[in-house]
Amino acid sequence: MQGTLLLTKAEIIRLRRNRRFLIFTIALPVVLYLIFAKQKATAYGVSFEAFYMVGMASFGAFSGAFNNNTIRISQERKDGWIRQLRLTPLPANAYVVAKIISSMVTTVPSIVIVLLLGRFYAGVHLEAWKWVAIGVTIWLGTLIFAALAVAVGYTFNPDSVQPVALVIYFFFVIFGGLWFPLSGGLKKFGEFTPTYQVVRISTDVVGSGAVSVAAVVGIAVWLVIFLSLATVAVRATAETV
């Protein structure tokens, strides 16, 4: 476990140095929020400011956990860094565990900053437990996307991973309604995405405080699916990594 933590620490150092990572997880959601948050509208039964706060926090967390990890994992698999780690006393799963933990650590600031903007810039007022609940919900969503990133990173080579990751990324961003609220047919379709469910649980907390059981079950199902895919992908490469 100590070795896994050392690796996690190194991963966090790397992420902090990565400008692309900082732009997509922190700068972009913050800028978008400052530009678009203040609108006289409602979405999913809450004010637009509150919806957009949840959307942007999820967007930053999703970008941080997914975008960056897929490409890195694929590249590090090809470069042989994963092989090199297998020659050390690190437990076999340490690489994947360190990626997921480091993602979950580094997405915290982006979630917190957007929530702070919601409170102090856009004037969203919530009870204390609701702030905690939406923060934790979005943060746990990071786990789902990190698992997906592992599955994709282990399945595709560096040549093909970028377009694949981009398609998956925009699919979940747009059909999950992270940038704008879904309605009509788009909503019927997008309701199934994990990104939508993270947003929906959070806006339910903001609004009525009563969370839809379907969304919670849906998110659990996605977590199981992505973790299974990740496990299968990692196992499939056990001989070639």
Partner: peptide, 16 residues
């Protein structure tokens, strides 16, 4: 930890 190895195909962690 009784083995140290260097492979041709062994890569390094970038950015550190």
């Amino acid at each position: 930890g009784r083995v140290g190895a260097m492979l041709q195909s062994g890569g390094l962690m970038p950015e550190v």
